[in-house]
């Protein structure tokens, strides 16, 4: 009798047994520990990233008929995308604009990051905070600020008029692709400066001294030591600026005028007044794929360049 209860107790004590089992499994399998550790992020990524992309892909396979969705699976929207000139053209233009923005941003960010990493000795933190300062105001306000600067009666035009350099305000500086590039390059500057700064900061200073000792001048030292070692930062900065700006639609809408529209505007138009969500989803899916492709081409190019130089 007593023995029986004991057995029952043993068999019927899942809490202790389960806990023990989980503990053992935890100790035995490293992957289980790893997955548990990343699970909050993993769950968030699945819910907030993978699932919406799944919905988007699903939606892009439907079609719009009037106010309703026609739920038969079809590639019609993708055919429309490649059948009409406008979509590939605007997507290609968006990729070009963003590439230009990424290039300009990195080019402008590098000297600043270099200065902070190598020449600022004290209060580095203050400098870094100053760089993020524009981010303390809303993105929209920064775009509007550029409208004020580049506008017809804006800072640039009234300044030049006062100086007597021009008589009529310049009209070509706002409402075109250039204005979009300038605005985006400023708005995303911090995303380029910080990664470049971090990779420059990490460079072992003795390597630079060594280059000098071996007789390299400042230019060659930069090209053969500093620049290659800061490449990870430059690549990260390029991607951080390029990827999000392809889909931007607020900036082109506010400063792009009639000719500066980008793929984001078409997606917005399809989801908004075009009232064709499946088409919008298809445009979004294709842009995502093309951006991925562009990034792969970029990374491949960097790899090839490295091999060429090595």
């Amino acid at each position: 009798m007593k023995e029986q209860t004991l057995h029952a107790a043993e068999a019927g004590s899942p809490p202790g047994g389960l806990r023990e089992g989980v503990r053992r499994a935890f100790l035995r399998h490293e992957w289980l520990r790893a997955y548990t550790l990343v699970s909050p992020t993993l769950i968030l990524l699945i819910v907030a990233m993978a699932a919406p992309i799944g919905v988007l892909v699903g939606l892009s396979l439907w079609t719009q008929s009037g106010m309703e969705f026609d739920r038969t699976l079809t590639l019609a929207n993708y055919e429309t995308f490649f059948g009409k000139k406008i979509y590939p053209l605007v997507l290609w233009r968006s990729i070009q604009i963003s590439a230009l923005v990424a290039f300009a941003t990195v080019l402008l960010a590098y000297p600043l990051a270099y200065f902070i990493a190598f020449h600022v000795q004290r209060h580095k933190m203050v400098w870094l905070i100053l760089i993020t300062l524009p981010f303390w105001t809303s993105y929209l306000l920064r775009v509007f600020a550029w409208k004020l600067i580049l506008g017809y009666n804006g800072v640039v035009n009234s300044g030049l008029t006062t100086l007597g350099l021009i008589e009529q305000p310049l009209e070509f500086i706002l409402y075109n692709v250039t204005a979009v590039v300038i605005t985006l390059a400023h708005a995303w500057a911090a995303f380029a400066i910080l990664p470049i700064y971090v990779s420059l900061e990490k460079i072992d200073r003795s390597l630079i001294d060594a280059a000098h000792d071996l007789g390299e001048g400042p230019v060659m030292t930069f090209l053969r030591v500093t620049l290659p070692l800061s490449m990870p930062g430059v690549i990260a900065a390029t991607l951080l600026v390029f990827i999000p700006t392809v889909g931007d639609y607020v900036t082109p809408k506010l400063v792009g005028g009639t000719t500066g529209i980008m793929i984001g505007n078409l997606i917005q138009s399809a989801f908004g007044r075009g009232a064709n969500w499946p088409m919008g989803a298809a445009i979004a899916v294709i842009s995502m794929l093309m951006v991925t492709l562009a990034v792969c081409v970029f990374l491949g190019g960097v790899k090839g360049l490295k091999k060429l130089l090595a």
């Binding site: 000139k85 406008i86 053209l89 605007v90 009639t258 000719t259 078409l266 075009g274 064709n276």
Partner: peptide, 14 residues
């Protein structure tokens, strides 16, 4: 729908 599409197209320069 056709009119909106046309509007988007001319804005894209087509």
């Amino acid at each position: 729908g056709a009119l909106q599409e046309m509007f988007d197209e001319v804005k894209a320069g087509l």
